[in-house]
């Protein structure tokens, strides 16, 4: 890698390069502003007094600073518990999903595999239909998965989308590598673990990210299968709960003590909780990306890994 970089800098920058780079950088800076704004805006709303936020007009800076929205979220005892479950399901779900997806992807990437086409088609089709809410629910019940942690992991082990992505990357690897390994007497498992996995780091990182984000953001399966099991709810679900709760709080206040002023009591509103929730729920998962980036931000030379 180092070598490649050195060589690169050895070339003179042409005029075209300079123009290209400059406009590219300007474009990227503008793009970043557009992409960053919503988050800064949500942060500002999340640390602004909820009652004041009703007026609107909060952009990048809070008008009446307060931590109350965050206190409101974290004073909820189940949130900490839920974070643990969220982390667990993300880690286990990503790990298990990655291994299973990669294995099947490897198999269906093999030209010689007898069931190559059938298995591929069987998985692809699952992208375009589903049996519906109630049949799926009954299946989970009959498999005794309801009320367990595994209902988060098992049904989502392999997504056809990730599988196909991974397969096409593996297919893109030079055939000579496999052939060489086989001549050396390596079996499929050895080829898979020792050659294909290390060579596919960029796609593994990509699929890991997809899986992790998917697992982290899920709340619907909690709603369906584990809502009455308070030890298995996830962060997203608990936040949804706090959010839907915030909608009544003020209505409740208004009806009970209309016109009493309400000046002293700090309230929360759906808007302020939504903003707080956006930050609380997305910051941890956003941080995953920079760690995975190193696997594909640089670009690699396949020759070098051999």
């Amino acid at each position: 890698m180092k070598k490649a970089k050195k060589r690169k800098s050895g070339f003179m920058k042409t005029r075209e390069d300079v123009i290209f780079d400059t406009s590219n950088i300007i474009f990227m800076v503008l793009l970043c502003l557009v992409m960053l704004y919503p988050f800064l805006n949500q942060i500002a709303i999340s640390v602004n007094d909820a009652s004041d936020s009703v007026r609107g007009g909060i952009y990048l800076w809070p008008r009446e600073f307060t931590w109350h929205n965050y206190e409101h979220v974290f004073e909820n005892a189940s949130v900490l518990q839920a974070i643990l479950i969220s982390v667990l399901r993300t880690v286990i779900g990503t790990g298990a999903g990655l291994l299973c997806t990669a294995m099947v992807a490897y198999a269906i990437a093999q030209e010689k595999f007898v069931f190559k086409k059938s298995v591929t088609i069987i998985f692809i089709m699952t992208m375009y239909f589903n049996g519906g809410l109630i049949p799926t629910f009954l299946l989970m019940r009959d498999l005794n998965l309801i009320g367990t942690f595994w209902v988060y992991i098992l049904p989502t082990l392999i997504s056809a989308f990730n599988l196909i992505i991974m397969r096409s990357f593996i297919e893109g690897l030079p055939k000579s590598i496999f052939e060489q390994a086989r001549i050396d007497g390596a079996g499929d498992f050895r080829v898979f673990f020792q050659i294909v996995l290390p060579l596919s780091l960029p796609v593994i990182a990509t699929v890991a990210l997809f899986l992790a984000v998917f697992q982290w953001n899920q709340w619907f399966d909690v709603f369906l299968y584990n809502s009455s099991n308070e030890y298995l709810t996830t962060l997203q679900y608990e936040l949804m709960k706090i959010l839907s709760n915030s909608a009544t709080q003020t209505g409740d206040m208004a009806s009970a003590f209309a016109n009493s002023g309400g000046g002293s009591a700090e309230i929360v509103t759906p808007k302020s909780i939504q903003a707080t929730m956006t930050i609380v729920a997305s910051l941890p998962i956003i941080c995953v990306y920079p760690f995975l980036q190193k696997y594909f931000v640089k670009g690699m030379t396949i020759g070098a890994v051999k």
Partner: peptide, 12 residues
């Protein structure tokens, strides 16, 4: 840039 560009995906 890469990290920032994917931020809006996390907004509901």
């Amino acid at each position: 840039v890469q990290t920032i560009s994917y931020l809006p995906h996390f907004l509901s």
